[in-house]
């Protein structure tokens, strides 16, 4: 099975983010970056499918040059080769633009299966994979927690709300968006890191005719809606104060 996995580079969760001067994006010039979490699960699922069925795993990422970092990481974890779509405007682009950039770069590869994460940690559109499926003209299913593949068909377990699930079948080629927790992740080994250096990375310029479908006018910290009593002081003082408040004020203990 020839499998593409789309991975996005995002700012590390622990990075203290600030809004930038234009108030339309965050200050990320000096930030540290990592692979979007569900994408790591999508990559792991692709590697497992390859182990079971043979074939190839190709990691695809669209972004500014710094995105090379997550591509290297994916290759170190076991992907066979990479396609990196480069464009500075892709860092804060909307899902239509990113999907357009990815579609142009992978259309001719003829992948049997395209995997993406279900949602990005930064923009959180939850759309890039779904739009990519439309652009590629292949069926899709989202929020997938198990993948069975046989004879050119997929049977996948979709997560629904409130603890419900559903099995859905479709022919390949197809696109699936993968939910975190579908498998247990493996991490890169030293051998993998060394091997990654020799793997092929095809770098392509983002198509010039990509048009956004939405525009960020302003980013800000959300207004507080609840009166929160912040308790300061040393851990011991704060803890004593909290316990007192829970006993006497809230009567919760």
């Amino acid at each position: 099975m020839k499998i593409a996995v789309c991975v996005k580079q995002v700012v590390t969760r622990e990075w203290p983010l600030r809004v930038d001067e234009a108030r339309t994006w965050v200050q990320d010039r000096d930030a540290s970056f990592e692979m979007n979490e569900p994408d790591a699960y999508a990559l792991e699922e692709a590697l497992r499918l390859k182990e079971g069925h043979g074939g190839e795993v190709v990691v695809c990422s669209a972004g500014p040059p710094r995105a090379a970092q997550v591509v290297r990481e994916a290759l170190a974890r076991g992907a066979d080769r990479a396609i990196r779509v480069e464009g500075d405007g892709l860092a804060a682009a909307d899902a239509s633009m990113v999907a357009g950039a990815l579609a142009a770069a992978i259309r001719d590869e003829g992948f049997d299966l395209v995997l993406t994460g279900l949602q990005s940690d930064d923009q959180g559109f939850a759309q890039t994979g779904v739009v990519l499926a439309e652009l590629l003209g292949i069926p899709h299913a989202t929020i997938i927690m198990e993948v069975q593949a046989a004879d050119g068909r997929l049977r996948v377990k979709r997560e629904l709300e409130g603890g419900w699930f559903q099995w859905v079948s479709m022919p390949t080629p197809a696109l699936l968006t993968i939910q975190s927790g579908i498998n247990q992740l493996r991490y890169a080994t030293l051998k993998g890191i060394m091997a990654a250096k020799r793997k092929e990375v095809r770098v392509v310029e983002a198509a010039a005719d990509l048009a956004p479908g939405q525009e960020i006018l302003e980013i800000r910290v959300p207004e507080k809606t609840k009166q929160t009593r912040m308790i300061d002081g040393s851990p011991a003082d704060a803890a004593a104060e909290l316990v007192k408040a829970l006993r006497e004020e809230a009567r919760a203990i």
Partner: peptide, 26 residues
């Protein structure tokens, strides 16, 4: 952290310091 927007009481701190202190205070 957005959790403070729904909290009635909030402590900004390292849980590895604060949790033992709460256990002691209880």
């Amino acid at each position: 952290a957005p959790i403070f927007e729904v909290a009635d009481y909030g402590i900004v701190g390292d849980l590895f310091d604060v949790v033992p202190a709460i256990i002691a205070a209880l």
